[in-house]
């Protein structure tokens, strides 16, 4: 399909979607699905995203984004990303496809960027976190984050892990919680004798696991992980993956990864994002979302199949 035609198609679907914004989700999904069936070969985000049915009872977060702007730059458009409870949702896609941007929108991290603008809703336990009455600080207390680059604080290892606990005025046994967090981040054995040393004295991989310990110490309801293993060696990566699988017993994890093997190893659900350069910019959008098994074994979209086969990156 040529670019202009595709752009026109996207635009019309968009308009329709905007009209549907207020109607209930099921109806909208069905409408979009009909669209999908009528133009089966369209690699269109909305239809594909909507084709992924999730029991509303099971979604802890529901991201329905219209547009994300950085200033005038349209970074991501039209993506419906439900995050299911006690599951790991993986975000994959080529560089610049907006998967990190979408992830960071889930706890309003992007609000730190003055020119960032979010159009749409992200509901968390039924509440839109982009509602004017919601303080982003509050959101981040419940939805924790691990970043791509290790970013420990300039303080001791112990204080790094205890940071969130102190912030939340945790009253219980601090030492026990710190140890538990460090153990689950597979770091305890390496640092138990030097908890007073600065977190910055650790190696890169250790620093990342320290950041993971810091994030899980408060046991946040949802943990967002933005390529958490890109600075880790294979052994540490495996340990962190085990931690994710452990975490999902009680919590919910959303994971951005560049590593498709990692997605297949840990993600229950996978969302594939891609970049649309047809309108002159580089706009990311959700191509397809579904069971990880299905995404990798039998993708609905041609684009997903190509990406998974390694035809582009």
């Amino acid at each position: 399909m040529n670019a202009t035609a595709e752009a026109g198609l996207i635009e019309s679907t968009l308009l329709e979607r905007n009209r549907n914004m207020d109607t209930n989700r099921e109806t909208q999904m069905d409408t979009d699905r009909d669209d999908h069936q009528s133009r089966t070969s369209t690699p269109d985000s909305i239809t594909a995203a909507a084709a992924w049915h999730v029991d509303p009872q099971q979604t802890v977060m529901d991201c329905r984004l219209n547009k994300i702007f950085y200033g005038d730059f349209l970074a991501v458009r039209d993506s419906l990303v439900p995050i299911e409870k006690n599951k790991i949702t993986g975000f994959i896609g080529p560089s610049g496809c907006g998967k990190s941007t979408v992830l960071r929108s889930l706890n309003r991290m992007n609000d730190l960027i003055p020119v960032f603008r979010f159009e749409g809703t992200v509901t968390y336990h039924g509440q839109d976190i982009y509602d004017k009455s919601i303080d982003p600080v509050l959101v981040r207390r419940y939805i924790g984050m691990v970043f791509q680059q290790p970013n420990p604080f300039s303080m001791s290892i112990y204080d790094n892990v205890a940071f969130g606990l102190r912030l939340n005025r945790f009253k219980g046994d601090m030492n026990e919680r710190v140890e538990k967090a460090l153990r689950s981040a597979a770091l305890w054995n390496e640092v138990k004798d030097k908890l007073k040393n600065s977190g910055l004295s650790l190696s890169g991989g250790q620093q990342q696991r320290l950041c993971i310990a810091r994030a899980v110490a408060t046991e946040p309801d949802v943990l967002l992980m933005d390529e958490p293993c890109s600075a880790l060696d294979p052994i540490a990566t495996r340990q962190v993956e085990e931690l994710m699988l452990e975490l999902k017993e009680n919590y919910t994890v959303a994971l951005v990864t560049h590593n498709m093997q990692q997605a297949t190893r840990v993600a229950d659900t996978t969302a594939f994002f891609s970049v649309d350069i047809s309108e002159g910019g580089r706009t990311g959008y959700l191509v397809e979302m579904g069971d990880t098994q299905q995404i990798f074994a039998d993708p609905r979209e041609k684009l997903t199949r190509e990406y998974i086969a390694g035809e582009f990156s």
Binding site: V137, L138, G144, F147, F153, S154, F163, N168, A215
Partner: peptide, 21 residues
């Protein structure tokens, strides 16, 4: 910048981020 991100990512208010981090 990543340090600032880490602080806000933990759910600090602005003053907590400034004074503690």
């Amino acid at each position: 910048y990543k340090v600032k991100e880490a602080a806000y990512g933990m759910g600090t208010t602005r003053w907590e981020a400034i004074l503690k981090v």
